[in-house]
């Protein structure tokens, strides 16, 4: 019960709830069409009519941020899921096999960990082409290494538990033991870790689309919205600051929830 009363967690959950609405049904929150100009008012500062102001084409920035949530967040979720699943699989095989297989797999993982995640993502995007999906794959691959390490450590811990030994003496087959006993008992930390990784993935996805590897204009996307405002940073700073703040708040909210998930298990 105490977890619900924690103000940080409560606020985080609230932010994420609003974000979720933006992802599922953006028209509910956005007052204007994200693609059409709302009149002749170009580069207007924030007001009650236009919460985040308007951009160079007189489009409502708030509406564009709301509509951008879907692409940005789906890419981040896809990245985290892909990284967690792939990493867990690698960790499971490596930890269960042991010996030479483990050694070889872990050296590959070491190499993956040695390359900065964002660089790895850049390589992937460069070879797969621009777009949200390739960004997601790139960012996911960047996170795979740490997931694999955590999973392997868990598998090695669980493998030595007495109930695994008991399962062997029952005459169960090895794959059965791995899937029914080792995997479920080893994956708890992966779930906790995935929630923290999600926050990092949102940042990484935004960074890559800021650099121009993501969705192409006029599709709204958080990183590219920040990037769009760059040329007007001296005259209309809200164009970058507002979407940037949204990224910050959402990342913090995801983190806030993740921390509470981790702390309570």
């Amino acid at each position: 019960m105490r977890r619900l009363l924690n103000p940080v967690a409560l606020l985080s959950v609230l932010v994420l709830a609003v974000t979720l609405v933006a992802v599922i049904w953006p028209a509910l929150l956005a007052p204007y069409d994200p693609f059409d100009s709302v009149g002749t008012a170009r580069l207007e500062p924030p007001s009650w009519d236009h919460l985040f102001g308007t951009d160079a084409l007189a489009r409502d920035v708030f509406s564009r941020v709301v509509h951008g949530a879907r692409l940005s967040l789906l890419a981040a979720v896809l990245a985290t899921t892909a990284g967690a699943v792939l990493g867990a699989l690698i960790g499971l095989v490596s930890g269960a096999a042991g010996g030479r297989v483990d050694f070889a797999v872990m050296r590959v993982v070491d190499v993956m960990l040695a390359i900065p995640g964002i660089l790895l993502a850049l390589i992937v995007v460069a070879s797969l082409g621009f777009g949200a999906v390739s960004i997601a794959i790139g960012v996911g691959l960047g996170a795979t290494g740490s997931f694999a390490r955590v999973m392997r450590a868990q598998v090695m811990r669980v493998r030595n538990e007495e109930y695994i030994e008991a399962a062997r003496t029952m005459g169960l087959r090895r794959p059965t033991i791995l899937l029914r006993h080792v995997l479920p008992n080893a994956s708890k930390p992966i779930v906790a870790m995935a929630s923290t990784e999600l926050a990092l993935a949102i940042l990484a996805v935004s960074a890559l689309s800021f650099l121009g590897f993501g969705a192409q204009p006029p599709t709204p996307e958080w990183g590219s919205l920040v990037s769009d405002g760059r040329q007007f940073i001296a005259t209309a700073p809200w164009l970058s600051i507002m979407p940037g703040s949204v990224i910050l708040v959402v990342v913090l909210a995801v983190n806030g929830v993740a921390r509470n998930l981790g702390g309570n298990r």
């Binding site: 007495e162 109930y163 003496t169």
Partner: peptide
């Protein structure tokens, strides 16, 4: 293995939680 079964020392530890 079905002819020989084992009961371990730590009862909770030998059951998948």
């Amino acid at each position: 293995r079905r002819y020989i079964q084992v009961v371990f020392q730590n009862p909770v530890g030998s059951l998948d939680p």
